[in-house]
Design a protein around this nucleic acid. Structure first.
Lengths: 223, 223
DNA sequence: CACGCTCTTGGTCGGATGACCAAGGAAGCG
DNA sequence: CGCTTCCTTGGTCATCCGACCAAGAGCGTG
């Protein structure tokens, strides 16, 4: 019996509970007493581990982003085809977001609640995740799979937007699984919505072709 | 001088201020005293008009959604071409979201803060906006502009996601205007990302073709 | 068994919050 | 000029929050 196994305190369960409540009501509207009661511990016990409420949020987001990176990396490793890797990564991202991990949702939608250095730290982690995606897209573009002139960073941002927004409308009772949603989105994004006879006649508003730029190591400007 | 003009109280300014603060810190983390001070009134004066903090949020969201509907309707009316109408609507939506109206942002990202009947009311208004978009997409599909088998509701949801997410990363200092972003998104969505020689060989994962269904009057399931 | 360490218990504390209100203008009307 | 209506003022009030802590329980170890 190791020392680790002796810890009766369910730290993961506490974070799960907190994530669920934060998702339901938002960070600011959730009290420590609520979390403690829902998790079956006393408020003081939370304070012993996390000196402030914000630390709880950071720990929860940290865990969520590590999970996301691991899940997408594992999924993408299933194939060596650049475009297929993107599709598999998208599936994994949506599966994690929609199938139970409230932490990912909180990470995406509640990070306004962070302040100062805590925010910086999470942003840094999130940038790592985004850089990982940029790398996959860059490979696909480099392999000639993508239309010339496509802005990879915008593609990633649009894709993240559409995918992350699914969490606001997805229902487990619906008639599509997260994976199906991912595949449909991927097919729309890959092939476009216009029918073949319309593709030629429509003014594309496509920006001038530019060679795909390598994923930039610099963080997003602004934000 | 009408009675209306005599009202010295700047109700619109109050809502603007509240929207700005809600956007910055979230609804729950913003206090009535903060809003009052930033708007240059006393807390009691807010209470006179809005019996509860939530009523302020509802009023603000109500105004935002009316603005959004009006802006998109006006923009789309500039053209009678179904696909062009969609593009113009997208431009208007993004312009409103990115160029100053914090209320739209709050509407999109802070509606978890609403409870009970207040939430129902906003959802009802939001459904109207979505139905308007569904109508435009239905027209485009009916005119044969869209690939057969495209699920219009999913297209709207994906589009909303990508567009609304822009608010989380857009910076006025960036090198693209909201309109340019809208056009790029539209071109990617319309034509797809894959290069022409890849379109045929890629497994599309496209769902079986189905006739475009008319926009359903029923509200979203779930949520 | 007794020591020592980790973690829990049950409570306190200052401060802030949303809601509320009695009293007092200020403007327009008759 | 006095009345009425509308709105502001300046404050109160009960409640609740996050943070904190002294005391002690639990438990493996020596």
């Amino acid at each position: 019996m190791t020392k680790e196994a002796l810890r009766t305190f369910d730290e993961a369960g506490l974070l799960d509970t907190a994530a669920r409540l934060f998702r339901q009501k938002g960070f600011a509207a959730t009290t420590l007493r609520e979390i403690a009661q829902a998790a079956g511990v006393l408020p003081g016990s939370i304070h012993y581990r996390y000196p402030a409420k914000e630390a709880l949020l950071v720990a929860l987001m940290d865990r969520a982003i590590e999970r996301a990176i691991a899940a997408v990396r594992t999924a993408a490793a299933q194939s060596s085809d650049p475009t297929e890797r993107v599709r598999l990564g998208l599936r994994a991202h949506l599966h994690l977001l929609l199938s139970g991990d409230d932490g990912v949702y909180v990470l995406l939608y509640d990070w306004r609640s962070l302040t100062g250095r805590a925010r910086d730290e999470i942003v840094r982690l999130r940038d790592r995740y985004e850089a990982f995606w940029d790398g996959m897209l860059y490979e696909a573009a480099g392999a000639g799979r993508l239309r010339p002139g496509v802005d990879l960073k915008l593609v990633r941002l649009f894709g993240f937007g559409a995918a992350n927004w699914v969490a606001t409308w997805y229902s487990p009772d619906g008639d599509r699984t997260p994976e199906q949603i991912a595949d449909v989105f991927w097919s729309y994004m890959a092939l476009g919505l216009l029918s073949d006879d319309q593709r030629a006649v429509t003014p594309a508003n496509m920006p001038a072709p530019e060679p795909p730029s390598p994923p930039s190591p610099s963080p997003e400007e602004g934000r």
